[in-house]
Amino acid sequence: MPSETPQAEVGPTGCPHRSGPHSAKGSLEKGSPEDKEAKEPLWIRPDAPSRCTWQLGRPASESPHHHTAPAKSPKILPDILKKIGDTPMVRINKIGKKFGLKCELLAKCEFFNAGGSVKDRISLRMIEDAERDGTLKPGDTIIEPTSGNTGIGLALAAAVRGYRCIIVMPEKMSSEKVDVLRALGAEIVRTPTNARFDSPESHVGVAWRLKNEIPNSHILDQYRNASNPLAHYDTTADEILQQCDGKLDMLVASVGTGGTITGIARKLKEKCPGCRIIGVDPEGSILAEPEELNQTEQTTYEVEGIGYDFIPTVLDRTVVDKWFKSNDEEAFTFARMLIAQEGLLCGGSAGSTVAVAVKAAQELQEGQRCVVILPDSVRNYMTKFLSDRWMLQKGFLKEEDLTEKKPWWWHLRVQELGLSAPLTVLPTITCGHTIEILREKGFDQAPVVDEAGVILGMVTLGNMLSSLLAGKVQPSDQVGKVIYKQFKQIRLTDTLGRLSHILEMDHFALVV
């Protein structure tokens, strides 16, 4: 994948999101292997301009796509893939009243899908469409860049269908997702969380590099694949309309690839034109409109599966009536509230959605109805927002919020430890010299600072030695090549209790 991002070429006709291997024109390309080798690009942008032909009021008969309808489940399912879809609609009884809503608040519980998330729908649909058009064949390999849930859905379907599955996901995604993927037989590649989507090191860039190296491999490409919004247009939206008897006044959905909100909203605009569509985008993402909503100094966020630093091709923002931004604290607070007060075992993005819903639905009156999409299960986040310690460490809970008995030293300040200034190293000294210094002084790690004293990161003896043994660096290389740029900081005025929580999850903390 090139470091400079080429513009994806656009073909003359058809839909841009065809499933299957992508040609340089962004659509299915038939021909000899030699032709494909000559024409197939190194990668295709996940934010390529959409060429979708959908228009409100256009006859369904003019759609270029294969459409399906929700099917009634048999008493005995032939395999677990038949437990994807037909998820329950559940009334939220307490939270709406707590925040003064007059309307009825309903939750579409997508964590009841077989793999635990709304992404099971698009995973199965992308595979079925690729099999139907002859792209996927027995023994082929599926590769997908994902925040985890699409990966789980694909790995689940691949396990049943017999495909090899490789999932490329950023490091910030939970260990629970990784464990589930491994249990399903998927191979996992992790990428830096802070890598831009168009960087060769991003999950998108690495996935395309693997595709170019592995024979008979395919990126189904949830960011561009029409099967993504079509899955929701054909099934999720129809289920909502049936469950609500066609009567709903507002739908609120958090947005990642945009397939969920695009597919549902398009069908609702056709069948229930008075329904307002509300999009939820986390602070630090750029999906919301108008652009002024996205202006923030924050560039990272903890909530998973929603928000991006690019506009995915499948996201149709014209069908969203209003956007709201959400933050991590309210997302996790509301997710825990949904679990504790409503018994809905949902993930953090569901918290984002409901946090926005109780604001947006203030305009609705008694007798009206708001539906929220709860995308995934708490299963993926047992060591994250479900953990009091994690919430404390991230600053989303305060010590006084917890009532468990603490040891005698818990409320003492870090400054009472009488710490001395640490050994520091410059980023320009060599790895070999740094190892000598650390061994001589008896230290395992040291902060790396520039000549102005600005902290650049941390270097550890173990990481340097393993990097040297693996051949990633040489003793003569500058130590700046092996620094940890993500590390926890703590102030002298913070409590030892807070430091204790940090050290339970990290090997060190830097006192500043």
Rank of each mutant, 00 (worst) to 15 (best):
A158V: 04
V178E: 05
G185H: 00
G14Y: 12
C103Y: 01
R209A: 08
V255P: 04
P200K: 08
V118W: 06
L210N: 03
E144A: 02
K271D: 04
A158D: 01
S174E: 03
G115W: 08
H67I: 11
A71V: 15
A231N: 06
I219W: 00
G274P: 04
V255S: 05
P170N: 01
L154D: 01
D129I: 06
P215N: 04
D79W: 06
T193A: 11
K98Q: 11
N113I: 02
K247S: 03
K75S: 15
H67Q: 09
G14D: 13
Q222T: 02
Q242K: 14
D234T: 05
R196Q: 11
P2F: 14
K94P: 03
W208K: 10
L220I: 02
Q7L: 05
S254I: 03
G263A: 00
D179F: 01
H218W: 11
D79A: 03
D234C: 01
K211W: 06
D249I: 01
H67V: 14
L136S: 05
A158Q: 02
G263P: 02
P21H: 10
D35H: 13
L28E: 10
V204Y: 10
R125N: 09
N228G: 00
K30D: 13
G31H: 10
H218D: 04
V180S: 08
K119C: 00
K269R: 12
P192T: 08
H22E: 15
E239F: 00
G148S: 05
K83G: 10
R125T: 05
G57M: 08
I127C: 04
R161C: 09
C52D: 00
E29M: 11
V10M: 15
K82V: 10
T135I: 05
S27W: 14
C103K: 01
T191P: 01
G14V: 11
A24F: 12
H17G: 13
D86F: 10
T68Q: 14
G259P: 01
T141E: 06
A130S: 09
I152Q: 01
S27F: 05
P273I: 08
G205P: 07
A24C: 12
D198W: 07
G259V: 01
I95D: 00
K25T: 08
H232F: 00
K102F: 02
H67G: 05
G162D: 15
W43Q: 07
A237V: 15
T262Q: 00
I264W: 02
I214P: 04
D221H: 07
Q55N: 15
G205N: 10
R45N: 09
P145N: 02
K211Q: 11
E270Q: 11
C52W: 03
K177R: 02
A114Y: 02
S123F: 06
T191R: 02
D198S: 09
G85C: 06
R18V: 13
L42C: 10
K211F: 08
G14W: 09
I214E: 04
K247I: 15
N149T: 02
V160D: 02
T150E: 01
A253S: 07
N216D: 11
N216V: 03
M250H: 01
S19R: 07
C244E: 01
K271L: 11
S61N: 05
W208H: 09
K30L: 10
K39V: 08
V118C: 07
D47N: 09
A107F: 05
G256K: 01
G116S: 13
E131M: 03
L154A: 04
P12C: 04
G96Y: 07
A159S: 04
H17S: 08
H232Q: 01
L101P: 00
A60P: 10
G139P: 08
C165L: 06
Q243L: 12
A71H: 11
K108R: 03
P200V: 08
D234P: 02
S175T: 13
A183I: 01
G139E: 01
V204R: 03
P215M: 08
P74C: 08
V255G: 05
M169N: 00
M250R: 02
V168C: 06
C15L: 11
L268N: 01
A158E: 02
L28T: 10
K211D: 06
E187W: 09
E239Q: 05
M89V: 10
A157K: 06
A157C: 09
E239R: 01
M169S: 01
K267H: 08
